[in-house]
Every structure is written in structure tokens, then in C-alpha cells.
Design a protein around this nucleic acid. Structure first.
Lengths: 110, 110
DNA sequence: CTCTATATGTAGGTGGTCTAGATAAGGGAG
DNA sequence: CTCCCTTATCTAGACCACCTACATATAGAG
């Protein structure tokens, strides 16, 4: 997967993964891999800063938890984040539609 | 359209637009707008350097023409570019599939 | 003459992502 | 006990595709 292709879609991916329930960063990375059928392997150096950015703008909130001696920062979708995710989903549809119509070799039918 | 979303898909768009026949930069920008239903308005500062980059790597070739006193640099898809476009199209399908499966709220069926 | 459309190009800035490395604790293998 | 893998988080710095803004030039309309 070309890294540049993810530009501008990272937020949607992260928000979508934590939609069902709170998750910590490491689990988010695994969830991305799993739900994409292994196609998405996003490095930690991308995910952790992105999560902090999303928290900074208010789309996520976080709290620390300790499970089995391991410290985790668990992220939760805020109301703002839920609205944002809605917007991201419709933006995604518009985006794929626009690119798809340029990429598809078929000429317009009369 | 969020500019970042286009990252990594510009090549596919440009190659696809010149697939049917040679076009010059200005016409390529108009074709992108038209074929996307107005969704894609890519600035000249993006397109011209991108076209030069694609020529540098051999996916496009160019020649100057003068039409009605205006100078145009007309770009043509090379064999290498045609192969590249094929690859870009399949990459696009994989990309949309991967993102789509993460973004879609539906849980996997048993 | 002025303004718009056509047409191409560059310099410099932005910012999200990646690379690479640091830190730390649990648990199994040997 | 020691080594190593997994789990878990974080940051500094580099990269580079894209954008903004500007410069240049001709044709044609008003």
C-alpha cells in the first residue's frame, strides 16, 4: 500500500475503528490490519501522533488504564468525533466517486 | 475536496486523462474537472510539476505545439505509462476495498 | 486600452506520514 | 537467570507531494 495514498484518510480510519468501543493505540493498529484483511499496516510512528492530534482537536478523548501490568492509553470517540466520522464517510463516498469516474475507462453514454 | 485526499492518486488521474489521446496541461485540468462532475479542481501549481515528474520517469512524453498563436506542451502516454496506469487502477481497487472495509460500519457476517 | 481566457512555469511553504530509535514491562524458552 | 519476543507508548527528524502565490505571454472581446 502506497503510504501517500493514506493521506487525508487516516482520521476516518482511526475514528471508524474506535466507533464500536474504546480502544488503545496498539489495539487500533491491530484492528486496522484485521479489518482491512491485512492490507493496512500502519506504523506506530503514524498512529500515535495521529491519535494525539485527534484528541487535541476534540474528536477523541483518552484515559490511562493498567491491564496486566501494562499501561494503556484508551481512546474514546467524542460527540464531535462522531459527527466528524459522519462527515468523513460522506467525504469518502464523494472522493471515490470523483476519482472513480476519472479512472474508469468507460466513455459517457449518450 | 480535501487536498490531502488526492495524495498518491494524482499520477493515476493524470495518466488516465491522457489515455484516450494526447492533451496539454491546461486541457488536462479542464478534463479532470469535467470528468469528475466538477468535484476535482486541481491547481496549475500541482498539475504542471506533476506532469514534468511523470515525463521524467518515462510515463509521459511531450512535444511543443502552437495552436492559434498559443504554445502548448502536449503530453502523450508512453508504453511505460500505460503499464503504470494498469497498476494504478488495480492499486485503486485494492485501496478503496481496504479503506471501505474499515469504514463500513457493518460487522463481518459468520 | 483593459480585461478575461488561454497557457505554462517556478519558488517557497505546509503538514501528514514514515523511519528509526528510545523506553518499559510481561512471559516463555533455554 | 538470561535472552528474546510480544505488548505498549512516544518522539525527533526527514521526506515529498501538494498548495499558494506569483511571474510571464498571447489572443480576443469590450
Amino acid at each position: 500500500m502506497n503510504p501517500d495514498a493514506l493521506r487525508g484518510h487516516m482520521d476516518a480510519l482511526l475514528l471508524s475503528v474506535v466507533e464500536a468501543g474504546p480502544l488503545h493505540g496498539y489495539a487500533i493498529i491491530e484492528a486496522l490490519q484485521e479489518r482491512s484483511g491485512g492490507a493496512l499496516s500502519v506504523p506506530t510512528g503514524t498512529v500515535y501522533p495521529a491519535l494525539r492530534r485527534l484528541e487535541r482537536v476534540g474528536h477523541l478523548s483518552s484515559e490511562w488504564a493498567t491491564v496486566g501490568g501494562r499501561k494503556r492509553r484508551t481512546y474514546r470517540l467524542t460527540d464531535s468525533g462522531r459527527k466528524q466520522l459522519e462527515g468523513e464517510r460522506s467525504a469518502w463516498r464523494e472522493f471515490t466517486s470523483a476519482i472513480g469516474s476519472v479512472l474508469s475507462p468507460g466513455p459517457e453514454a449518450p
